[in-house]
Design a protein around this nucleic acid. Structure first.
Lengths: 152, 152
DNA sequence: CTGTGTGCAAACATTTTGCAAGCAG
DNA sequence: CTGCTTGCAAAATGTTTGCACACAG
């Protein structure tokens, strides 16, 4: 089964503060709000979507889209967030507090099922190695028709 | 090994003309130049890169970037080209005359290496089955750092 | 001839950068 | 206090659209 790391927000925040300290960066209300919003809404956001949500949850901060971009990049560079690039334009980000997983997507009803498979992960590393790459990430999405939709 | 379908350009062009005819569209020198350039350079292009190359190969046509975008979209919508979205911004296109394959993308320099792996394909079907899905398609992109970029 | 295709410029959308003021440490 | 961070506006990128003219069928 898929398991989250269940990192409490408190712990996550501590790690984040440590990162900032280690790099001579500052802990600000905006950065906290962005991290908290990502934590409380475990799904994928475009910077724009996250920006809207942060503004809604923390209106008094008047956070700018610029700061959202800058913070997402900071989080991603340091492994606190991951991003996937969409077919069209832009990226979506999510907090990196789950074990790695991939998705099967039903082409009819849009249902998304998460799965993980160690054997595939292993093969991916092998393939990367064979091609001289150090693997940092991967994107695998299976498209198909789910059981319910097959019956209808 | 990866194998092309070895569709001759003549055949490809015929298919393309048929597509145009079927949709009441017109065969133009620019469209031919773009298709030919994709055919002669079997790699992945951003629209910008393809634009530069088409201009170089067919300077007398004075093809606009707009036309490159429009033609790539036309080709993709009709299965003559496929695109992959990069980590960063934009898409890269290639002519769709190869057997199925997936991509490893260097996150530093953007280099793309193609590969295919029957074992993974097989596992994907197995996973889909286990989740009650009939697999219709898949997308797999590995991201990493290529040999050259590791050294720099 | 008719209507699609073209290049150009402008519009759009998304992301980054320059800057003066704010604020964490 | 110091200098990192912020929001704003402007710039930079990448892509699409409006338009008048070109040209395939």
């Amino acid at each position: 089964m898929l398991e989250t790391k269940n990192l409490s927000f408190k712990k996550l925040l501590l790690e984040f503060k440590q990162l900032l300290k280690n790099n001579g960066l500052k802990f600000t209300a905006q950065r906290e709000a962005i991290l908290q919003t990502l934590y409380n809404h475990p799904k994928h956001f475009t910077p724009e979507e996250l920006y809207d949500l942060v503004k809604k949850k923390h209106p008094q901060l008047n956070t700018g889209i610029t700061t959202v971009y800058r913070t997402l990049n900071l989080l991603e560079e340091n492994g606190f967030a991951t991003s996937i690039s969409l077919g069209i334009q832009g990226k979506k980000f999510e907090l990196a507090n789950k074990e790695h997983h991939d998705h099967i997507i039903c082409e009819k009803c849009g249902k998304i099922v998460e799965f993980e498979d160690e054997e595939i992960e292993h093969l991916q590393h092998k393939i990367a190695q064979e091609n001289g790459f150090v693997l940092t990430n991967h994107l695998m999405q299976l498209y198909g028709i789910c059981k319910e939709c097959q019956e209808n």
